[in-house]
Design a protein around this nucleic acid. Structure first.
Lengths: 120, 120
DNA sequence: TGGGATACCCACCAAAAAGTAAGTATGGAT
DNA sequence: ATCCATACTTACTTTTTGGTGGGTATCCCA
């Protein structure tokens, strides 16, 4: 079997949280468990297909856990695993830097808006 | 002019450091200024085209600076701007989490290798 | 005259990621 | 019988990203 080789740690991190949607999903789940429909509302630009696909990949990477409530209509939520919690400070710093980036660009005259700041 | 709207700060961060290569390039530049050929050696999987393209985008985002030495043969290097430096702790935490992710996977029996740890 | 070194740039093509729109399944309420 | 809500799933298309192989420019040196 071939050995998988990384040059530098960040490569492995980006396999887990990289891509257009994963870090956004994780930042939301960092604050509280959320069900599919809540995530759809929190991330209005995402398609249902991408949301489900990204959730499956995050589950496979063991950073989130899918919890099914035995109810009708169906009720499912997603939350960080303990391992996913270990990403919490990384995710927080990603949010905070983005906020400062937005502030800076706004000061330079860009017409730019941020709806939710990360408070925790 | 349309207002650009972000839901959450991490979206803006990922515009700057997202994609397959940008965070890797930045992690290398975090340690010291590097010239094109050094970056090529440090990131052996990247093609010349992608390297140049990503460097241009990082320059446009104002996180790195291109420095031309007036010499023959040509000599150029890239370094973080002051603003790029503000990403330093984010980049470091991305490297460190990746390292722990690799360690964990190795403990679980994966055949996996990491060449360079982030020491600073 | 032409080769070496460095740092590109460009045209073209392939692969991967993402978007769209529709369909499936469950069981309760009307 | 039909509809509702939720949480998917699938087929198909478009967009984005990445790869290949070439070419340009400079000046020195043999």
């Amino acid at each position: 079997m071939a050995t998988k080789t990384y040059q530098i740690g960040v490569e492995a991190t980006m396999e887990v949280i990289g891509g257009k949607w994963k870090s956004i999903i994780l930042c939301h789940l960092r604050q509280q468990p959320m069900r599919t429909s809540e995530l759809e509302r929190a991330i209005p630009q995402i398609s249902q297909k991408m949301l489900v696909q990204q959730l499956r990949e995050l589950e496979a990477a063991n950073v989130i856990k899918r919890h099914v409530y035995q109810e009708v209509p169906p009720h499912v939520d997603y939350q960080l695993t303990d391992y996913g919690q270990s990403l919490s400070s990384v995710l927080h710093s990603l949010c905070v830097w983005g906020e400062s980036n937005i502030d800076r660009r706004r000061e330079q005259g860009e017409d730019i808006d941020l709806l939710h700041r990360d408070d925790l």
